[in-house]
Amino acid sequence: MSGFVPILKRELLVFFVTPLAWVLVTVFLLVQGMHFFLIVDHFSSQPATVAVQSPLQAFFGNTVLLYLVLFLLVPPLTMRLFAEERRSGTIEALLTTPVSPAAVVLAKYTAALVAYAFMWAPTALYVVILRRTGDVDLRVVGATYAGILGIGAAYLSIGLFASAVTRSQFIAFLLTAAVMLALFVVGIGEFVAREGSTMHAIATHVSVWAHMNELASGVVDSRRLVFYGTLTAVPLFATTRLVDAWRWSGT
């Protein structure tokens, strides 16, 4: 894996010295803060609902806001990774050093994942706040964050692949958002399709909404692990092949 560490370090450096990161972090935390405030406000005005679901479950589970936030977060994190290097030609300098395509892909991916985790990290404060006023099951919190990381890992992997497909960051952004939207829309089929039909089975399997709802109530299903594991590994593998193929197709 020669080359992994220096590329990872550079990607993180670039991420945190450009305004993009701080704009993203700011907007992200503003949205999440408002979201959290609304939920807490809702629960405090209607204490009876706590019996049905906990505030944390509402925050991560039964809400569309999480996906809106992911739309905001994932495509900007991944769009430049390869597209920019190809457009500016730096990919030529990068790939003529002793690095393997797998190391380049994994380093860029890891950098995006670290940045993603960095953005979510401050939301752990909400858990701290909730613990001061009530009981919070930390295993549920763990399952929830594992879900956030898993979904993020899969989306970021798709985003990385989209960034390697085109030289345009904008197209990479749109492609990533389109795939995320498609997965989400198919997932909605869970509520629309007739129960027992194939469509319903597929929809349930890919429904991010349902998955997060499950995880936010502390249920960790191995099928979900396999699903997100596959959704992460396949694009990563495809990206590695693509980077390798540039030697023949040209960048």
Binding site: R10, L13, V14, V17, T18, S88, G89, T90, I91, E92, A93
Partner: peptide, 8 residues
């Protein structure tokens, strides 16, 4: 083209 990273 001497490709370099302008931000570094």
């Amino acid at each position: 083209t001497v490709p370099l990273y302008p931000e570094m």
